[in-house]
Computed example of a mutant assay.
Amino acid sequence: MTAARIPWSDGRWTTAPAEARQDGDALLVTAVEGSDAWRTTAYGFVHDTEHALLAPLEPGTAMEVVFTGDFSAEFDQAGMFVRVDEENWTKAGVEFADGALQLGAVVTHRFSDWSVAPVPDWAGQSLTVRISRDGDAIVVRARAGEEPFRLVRIAHLDPAAAAEAGPMVCAPSRAGLTVCFVSWTRGPADASIH
């Protein structure tokens, strides 16, 4: 199987964004102020209002999204979302936090966790997030431009679970965040973890 483009119309929104419109092959998505995904840990709240456009993520496959955006307000974020149900999901990509663009992931199995690392030099660049599903794991990789992919996270995913994945955007602290998703593709899972 070679990588193939997924039509935007093949996805379903977890929560409808303020606006989603095609511009040529790209999809421009504007987030609703206050949108986010989190469950309980440290903050004590549950947010289940992310804008994620999802299609099936079968075992043995990978998905990639390429996007650009002006991430400049606290917790502006975009990337990919993998969902099994409301208590089991992963989001991965970039997020503006503590004054800098960060690369990271939130993995949730009833309770969310969060890991980030600063990538200030990624600001303003074309970004790619890739999720590969094989066995009992998903492997998250990301890159800016054409640089080599960086390993972001390895997380558990029940091999029997029906999972969906696709592009995601959230704007917890402001209105007006628009992300341009350039492409959404599906192909074979990565041959190795490293």
Rank of each mutant, 00 (worst) to 15 (best):
A3F: 14
A3N: 03
I6L: 14
S9R: 13
D10C: 11
D10G: 05
R12N: 07
E19N: 11
L27P: 10
L28P: 09
L28E: 14
T30C: 10
T30V: 10
V32Y: 00
D36W: 09
R39D: 11
A42Q: 11
A42H: 13
G44C: 01
T49P: 04
E50V: 06
P56T: 14
L57C: 02
E58L: 13
F67M: 02
T68D: 10
F71P: 08
E74T: 12
D76H: 15
D76A: 08
G79D: 09
G79V: 03
D85Y: 05
E87V: 08
N88V: 06
N88P: 04
T90D: 11
K91I: 11
F111S: 13
F111V: 08
F111R: 08
P118C: 01
P118D: 05
P120M: 02
A123F: 03
Q125L: 14
Q125N: 13
T128H: 09
R130C: 04
I131Y: 01
S132I: 01
E147P: 00
F149C: 04
L151W: 03
D158L: 03
P159G: 12
A163F: 06
A165E: 05
M168V: 15
M168G: 04
M168T: 07
R174Q: 10
A175Q: 14
S183I: 02
T185D: 12
G187K: 06
P188Q: 12
